[in-house]
Simulated scan of single mutants.
Amino acid sequence: MAENAAKRLKTADGGAGAVAIGTHNGHFHADEALAVYMLRQHIPIYSGAKLVRTRDPALLETCHTVVDVGGVYDATHNRYDHHQRTFATTFPGRATKLSSAGLVYLHFGREIVARRLASPQESEQVGLIWRKVYESFIEALDAHDNGISIYEPAGIAAAGLEKKFSDGGFTLGAMVGRLNPNWNDPVPEDPALAQAAEDERFVTASQRIGEEFDRDLDYYTKAWLPAREVAAGAFAARQEYDPEGRIMVLKGQSAPWKDHLYTLEEESQEVGKVLYVLYTEKPGPDAKWRIQCVPVTKDSFQSRKPLPEVWRGFRDEELDKISSIDGCVFVHAAGFIGGNKTFDGALAMAKKALEI
């Protein structure tokens, strides 16, 4: 039976002739909230698009594009549902099954990134950001909506690991989920008003998750990508400071390097690994220098080669005497970072640490 008109979203968006995006009504989730946002805010044809929230197949059939409902994935007809038993599509190089957010990003993500960079969709930079934003943001939504845990539950149980405290469950998915009405919130008696209130919450959720997506996109296009150039230059010059390339120096203003370093090492296919990275605390000729140990992995607290144990926890003149290097500022008690007043001093610390 056709759905009651009160169960359809009637938004102020979209004038005559505007395309319509369909998605389901009822309890909403992060994936369709973001899918709708990406289309409406980043793809010109959907600018000002009408939004139709329904499960009525007849109404969905009238929509130009449908996400997260309808039981069909067919990009040629703008249908992006993932709930079919036969659905198994993943992002290139990733194992996580896509949700509606991942499907929309798979097909429109390159255009979104290209517009932000003002570059051709086929460019290497667009491809880098397209993949990075998926891995850093979209994939978590795909996994959440498909019930995929970040860790294998059986492996966690076998290892006997338990949470020591609650993290509040604040994920991207939970952030959107909290914008749904509570079970005991007052509901207008008029079905049309009740649907309108639910629809308003969805629009708020779509905007909220979209703002986070835009922040992620801005970071990777405006900060992460330029940092890659800085890290690549330093990586290429690393043998100037150590024949085996174990010391990397970021000249001038320091930039985020960890993520890029692992990629650069993988791409170079060289056996040796960078152990220490040197950079200034701030721009300027009088800036102090830091020596940081490269972690085993990007998110690890374990260093490939920590600074010498005999230096750890000491500062200033006392550290000068222990290390026989002038200008020392400190070495952290955990041995993952240290400092010196000058570049020459920091480099001397790195070279001596390699020998101990």
Rank of each mutant, 00 (worst) to 15 (best):
A6W: 09
G17C: 10
G17T: 08
V19S: 08
A20E: 06
G22Q: 09
N25I: 02
H29R: 09
H29G: 10
A30C: 15
A33N: 05
A33L: 05
L34P: 10
M38D: 05
H42L: 04
A49W: 05
A49S: 15
R55W: 05
P57S: 13
V66G: 01
D68T: 03
G71T: 04
V72H: 06
Y73F: 15
N78D: 14
H82A: 09
F87Y: 14
T89I: 14
T90S: 05
F91C: 08
A95N: 12
A101M: 06
G102L: 10
L103M: 12
V104L: 11
F108H: 15
E111P: 03
R115V: 00
L117M: 11
S119N: 09
V126M: 04
V126N: 04
W130E: 09
K132S: 11
V133F: 00
V133I: 15
V133E: 04
Y134A: 04
E139H: 03
A140V: 08
L141M: 12
H144C: 05
H144E: 10
D145R: 04
D145L: 06
N146V: 07
S149V: 00
Y151S: 05
E152R: 07
P153C: 07
P153D: 10
A154F: 01
G155E: 14
I156R: 12
G160D: 10
G160Y: 11
E162F: 03
K163S: 11
K163Q: 11
F165C: 03
G168W: 09
G173Q: 08
M175D: 01
G177K: 08
R178T: 06
R178P: 01
R178G: 12
L179R: 12
N182G: 15
N182A: 14
N182L: 14
A194N: 08
Q195L: 00
E198K: 08
F202W: 12
A205G: 07
A205D: 04
E212F: 13
E212W: 11
F213T: 05
R215M: 11
R215A: 11
D216H: 09
T221H: 05
K222P: 00
A223T: 15
L225C: 06
A227G: 07
R228H: 14
E229A: 14
R246I: 07
M248Y: 01
K251F: 03
G252C: 06
G252W: 12
S254A: 14
S254Y: 03
A255C: 01
P256M: 10
L264I: 07
E266V: 02
E267Y: 00
S268C: 06
G272S: 15
G272I: 01
V274H: 02
V274Y: 00
L278Y: 08
L278G: 07
K282P: 02
P285E: 12
P285G: 08
A287H: 04
K288A: 11
I291V: 15
I291N: 00
V296W: 03
D299M: 14
R304W: 03
E309H: 09
F314L: 13
R315D: 06
D320H: 00
K321W: 02
I322T: 01
S324R: 02
V331Y: 00
A333I: 13
A333L: 06
I337K: 01
G338P: 06
G339C: 07
G345Y: 00
